[in-house]
Lab assay of single mutants.
Amino acid sequence: GIDPFTGEAIAKFNFNGDTQVEMSFRKGERITLLRQVDENWYEGRIPGTSRQGIFPITYVDVIKRPL
């Protein structure tokens, strides 16, 4: 089901994660935001896939912030 505490964002740019914990994505992908890790990073996942990880806040347009 849908978790009411998650947020939502759209990727503004392609992001290629450097490490296992970073999640790569392509511009235009819809991302579920799980939490804000710190002032620069979100943790999120791509709905319908097993992809999950952290990524820079500046790479996405936030539609709804996670609670």
Rank of each mutant, 00 (worst) to 15 (best):
W41E: 02
R65T: 13
A9M: 04
F13K: 11
P66R: 04
S24R: 05
F25D: 01
T58D: 13
F13G: 06
V60D: 00
V37P: 03
T58Q: 13
K12R: 11
R30K: 10
R65P: 15
R51W: 02
N16W: 13
N14T: 11
G53Q: 01
F5K: 11
K27I: 12
G53F: 02
E39G: 11
L34D: 05
R35Q: 07
I54E: 03
I63T: 07
R30Y: 11
F5P: 10
S24V: 03
T32Y: 08
K27Y: 06
K64Y: 08
F13A: 11
N14P: 07
R51I: 05
V62H: 04
K12D: 02
Y42N: 01
D38L: 06
D3I: 12
K27C: 08
V37W: 08
G17E: 03
F15V: 02
R30S: 07
R35F: 07
A11H: 00
N14W: 05
D61F: 15
D3N: 11
E39I: 10
Q52N: 07
I63G: 04
V37L: 12
G48P: 05
A11I: 02
R65G: 15
T32Q: 11
N14Y: 05
I54C: 09
I54L: 10
E43A: 07
V21W: 14
E22C: 15
L34S: 04
D61S: 10
S24M: 04
S50A: 11
D18L: 15
I54T: 06
N16L: 11
Q36I: 09
I46L: 03
Q52H: 13
I2T: 14
Y42V: 06
G7P: 07
K12A: 07
Q36C: 09
T49C: 03
S24E: 04
N40S: 11
E29Q: 06
E29I: 03
G44L: 01
E43H: 09
Q36F: 07
D61L: 15
E22R: 06
K64P: 06
G1H: 11
D61R: 12
P47V: 11
G48N: 10
T19L: 10
Q52F: 11
I46D: 00
F55A: 00
Q36V: 09
P4I: 13
I31G: 00
M23Y: 01
E8G: 05
F55N: 00
K12P: 01
M23S: 01
Y42S: 03
Q20A: 15
N16E: 12
K12V: 09
F25S: 01
T6P: 13
F25I: 06
D3H: 12
V60T: 03
T6G: 09
D61A: 10
R51V: 04
D61E: 13
E22P: 02
A9F: 04
N14C: 08
E29K: 01
I2K: 13
W41Y: 12
G44C: 01
Q20T: 12
P66K: 04
E43I: 08
W41T: 10
R45N: 08
I46R: 01
T19N: 12
P47Q: 11
I54H: 05
M23H: 01
P66F: 04
P56N: 03
A9K: 02
T6I: 11
S50H: 10
N40E: 12
G1R: 07
L33C: 07
P56Y: 02
R51T: 03
I2R: 12
G53V: 01
I2N: 15
R26T: 12
R35L: 06
Q20C: 15
Y59L: 10
R65Q: 15
F25A: 02
V62E: 04
V60C: 07
Q52A: 09
T6D: 10
G48F: 09
A9V: 06
M23K: 00
G1K: 08
E39T: 09
Y59C: 12
P66T: 05
G44P: 01
F13R: 12
R45Q: 09
E29C: 03
R26F: 11
L33F: 04
T6V: 12
F5V: 10
F55H: 00
F15S: 01
L33K: 02
L33Y: 03
T19W: 06
G48D: 08
T32K: 08
M23D: 00
I2S: 14
F15R: 04
D61H: 14
W41Q: 06
I2E: 15
R51P: 00
I54V: 10
D3K: 11
R65S: 14
R35M: 07
R51F: 04
L67G: 15
G1Y: 08
R65M: 15
I10F: 06
I63M: 07
T6Q: 11
M23F: 08
Q36L: 10
T6A: 13
T58W: 14
Q20V: 14
A11K: 00
N16Q: 12
A9N: 01
S50M: 12
R30Q: 08
F13E: 12
E43L: 14
T32G: 05
V62S: 03
T19Q: 10
G17P: 06
I57N: 06
Q52W: 10
Y59R: 05
T6Y: 14
R65I: 14
K27N: 04
L67I: 15
G53I: 02
I54K: 07
D3V: 14
R51G: 02
P47I: 09
I46E: 01
T19Y: 07
P47W: 09
N40G: 11
K64I: 07
P66N: 07
G17A: 14
V37R: 05
G7H: 13
G1A: 12
L34R: 03
R65A: 15
I31D: 00
P4H: 14
I57R: 09
R51H: 03
R51A: 03
Y42W: 15
R45K: 12
T49Q: 05
L67V: 15
D38A: 09
Y42M: 11
R51S: 03
N16A: 10
S50I: 10
